[in-house]
C-alpha cells in the first residue's frame, strides 16, 4: 500500500518523535518506501533536532514567561513601580519588543561571533543612551528611530543581509542608544529605580535570547524561510509604528 498522505507521514513522525527512535520507519514495504524513508527521515531529523535541542526548550520557556500576564489585583505602584514594570516595559512596547527580538534573530543569522557580540553590545550601549535620557539631554526623533530600528533590522533579516561584524555592531549600537534614551526617560518616575532598571535590562536580554533561539532555525532550509518571514513581519510592525510617529 502506498503511504503518501501528509497525515500518515505526520503520524509516523509524531510516533517516532514520541518513541525517540527511527526504527519504525525502516520497516516499510512498498515501492515508495525508499522515497518515504528519505522524506520522513529528513523531517524526522529536523523534528528530533528541534525536540532535543535544549536551546529551543529554554527559548520556549522564556517565551512562556514573557507571555505570562501578571496578576494585577492591586496596581498601587503605578506604571513605573519597580522590577515588574521595568520588566514589562520592553515587552509591552511592541516597537521595542520586535527590535530586541530582531537583534537576536539577526545575530543568529550572521553566525559567530555576531550571535554573541550583538546581545553584549546592545545592553551596554543602551545604558549610555539611558543615562543621556535620565540626565535630560534631548535627542532628536527618538520614537522615529526606535520604530526605524525595527524596519531596518527586520529588512536586514528578510533580505538575509550578511553584513561585516563591525557594521552590524555599529548599526545595532546606534539603535541601542535611542532605545536606551526612551527607557531612561521613564526611569526617574520609577518608585524603585534599581529594580526598574534590573527589570528592563533582564527583559531586554531575554528578548535577545528568544530572537537567538528562533534565529537558530535558520540552519535549516525551511527554518531560514521562516526566519526571513519573521524579518518581514518585524519590518511591517516597525513600519506601522514609523507611519504613526511621522
Amino acid at each position: 500500500m502506498i503511504v503518501g498522505g501528509g497525515r500518515i507521514r505526520a503520524l509516523i513522525l509524531l510516533v517516532n518523535l514520541i518513541a525517540g527512535s527511527t526504527a519504525g520507519l525502516c520497516s516499510c514495504e512498498n515501492p515508495n518506501s525508499a522515497t518515504l524513508e528519505r522524506g520522513s527521515l529528513k523531517w524526522l531529523n529536523f523534528g528530533m533536532m528541534l525536540a532535543r535541542h535544549w536551546v529551543i526548550a529554554i527559548v520556549l520557556a522564556g517565551c512562556l514567561i514573557l507571555l505570562a500576564v501578571p496578576a494585577q489585583a492591586h496596581t498601587s505602584e503605578g506604571v513605573a513601580g519597580g522590577f515588574l514594570s521595568g520588566f514589562l516595559h520592553p515587552i509591552l512596547g511592541y516597537d521595542h519588543l520586535v527590535a530586541m527580538v530582531a537583534v537576536g534573530l539577526w545575530g543568529a543569522f550572521l553566525g559567530t561571533p555576531a550571535i554573541w557580540l550583538l546581545p553584549i553590545v546592545f545592553p551596554t550601549v543602551m545604558a549610555i543612551g539611558g543615562a543621556i535620557g535620565i540626565l535630560g539631554i534631548p535627542m532628536p526623533a527618538v520614537d522615529l528611530l526606535v520604530a526605524g530600528s525595527a524596519v531596518v533590522l527586520g529588512a536586514c533579516i528578510a533580505l538575509a543581509l550578511r553584513a561585516p561584524i563591525w557594521i552590524a555592531a555599529l548599526l545595532v549600537g546606534a539603535f541601542a542608544i535611542f532605545h536606551g534614551h526612551a527607557h531612561g526617560s521613564e526611569l526617574p518616575q520609577a518608585a524603585d529605580p534599581l529594580a526598574y532598571a534590573f527589570g528592563f535590562v533582564i527583559a531586554t536580554g531575554l528578548l535577545h535570547v528568544s530572537g537567538i533561539g528562533l534565529g537558530l532555525l535558520s540552519r535549516y532550509r525551511a527554518g531560514e524561510y521562516g526566519v526571513r518571514g519573521l524579518g518581514v513581519a518585524i519590518a511591517v510592525v516597525g513600519l506601522t509604528f514609523l507611519t504613526g510617529s511621522v
Binding site: M126, A127, A197, V201
Partner: peptide
C-alpha cells in the same frame, strides 16, 4: 556583566 554595567550606569545616572 553587560547587564550589571547597564543597570549600574542607569541608576548612577539617575
Amino acid at each position: 556583566g553587560s547587564w550589571i554595567f547597564a543597570v549600574s550606569m542607569l541608576v548612577l545616572a539617575q
